[in-house]
């Protein structure tokens, strides 16, 4: 019995090694599978993967309106304090006080692109952009204000 098990062990080992070698040979024979991007050369035709995350941005529509309510959920969700919501109170048409953002300060130099703020946002006001050429000469330029000047909240977003 021992001999049979010994030989079976060898056979199984050989089969599993062959499986690994088939995989590498598959890639060796298919240069189209190569995923390397020759970045500065192909800057115009750069093909980034769908889930690549570069920085947090706040999309605005053509009327300079965003969806942020200033609820601070993103600030709470951020593990290293990259986001800071500076809010103010606006008086609505009915004469009520309502919370709204003044500035959404984003510290790119602290951000780890973990995506937690995007998941925490109840109104989908922020999202991850795929830009990645972030290098600047002065660190202070990495502190960004995400809402554009003079922007306001979109109609109907609570």
């Amino acid at each position: 019995m021992g001999v049979i098990r010994y030989l079976r062990d060898i056979w199984r080992g050989a089969v599993s090694l062959a499986r690994g070698m088939r995989r590498t040979l598959y890639y060796f024979l298919r240069p189209k599978e190569i995923i390397t991007q020759q970045y500065p050369d192909n800057r115009l035709t750069l093909n980034l993967p769908e889930r690549f995350k570069g920085e947090v941005v706040m999309p605005h529509n053509e009327n300079n309106e965003h969806r942020c309510t200033g609820c601070q959920a993103c600030e709470l969700a951020c593990p290293n304090g990259s986001l800071k919501v500076i809010y103010k109170y606006e008086i609505t048409a009915e004469g009520k006080k309502k919370k709204a953002i003044d500035k959404l300060v984003y510290h790119l130099e602290l951000c780890t692109m973990c995506n937690l703020c995007i998941e925490a946002c109840p109104s989908d006001a922020i999202k991850m952009a795929q830009t990645f050429e972030h290098s600047v000469f002065d660190r202070s330029q990495l502190i960004k204000i995400l809402n554009k000047p003079g922007s306001k909240i979109m109609e109907g977003v609570e």
Partner: peptide, 10 residues
């Protein structure tokens, strides 16, 4: 070159 091709690199 061989290692690059097997690791899906250039």
């Amino acid at each position: 070159k061989v290692s690059a091709r097997m690791q899906v690199r250039l």
